[in-house]
């Protein structure tokens, strides 16, 4: 399967997907770590993909969306943004609203 097909499959099969450097337990980049903390805080379940494990996915995720940076967050297959956008959405409360609008359970 090509990297593009693999990404398409992952983001369509999981409600929330985080492409990141490292893992939620051991993030290897400050921006990835911030997004992990936010998603954990709002209590949304998410699948994570460590782009450092696969150079093709690492490049592929940048091409998939024509978005040059990592982390990247997808909700129901839709690209939401990277660390800056997720952080702003979290701070204004939009993140939680958007997740619940899309039927994703968060912590109260």
């Amino acid at each position: 399967m090509s990297a593009q097909d693999q990404i398409k499959k992952t983001v369509s099969e999981n409600d929330v997907v985080l492409y990141m450097k490292g893992t939620p337990v051991f993030p290897q980049c400050g921006f990835s770590s911030t997004v992990v903390q936010i998603l954990d805080y709002v209590g949304a379940e998410y699948a994570s993909v460590n782009v450092l494990e696969d150079p093709e996915i690492r490049q592929g995720i940048k091409d998939y969306n024509n978005w040059p940076t990592i982390p990247q967050v997808f909700v129901k297959g839709e690209f939401i943004g990277g660390c800056d956008i997720v952080k702003e959405m979290f701070e204004t409360g939009e993140l939680r609203t958007m997740l619940s609008d899309k039927g994703i359970t968060t912590k109260a």
Binding site: W67, P68, C83, D84, I85
Partner: peptide, 26 residues
């Protein structure tokens, strides 16, 4: 939208971003 603002900036800076390691934006 937020995404559109970020995209507008990222598009203009694609050459620079390709040469650096990290970029954050407000």
């Amino acid at each position: 939208s937020r995404l559109a603002k970020h995209r507008a900036v990222l598009d203009v800076l694609s050459e620079e971003i390709a040469q650096i390691h990290a970029f954050s934006l407000e």
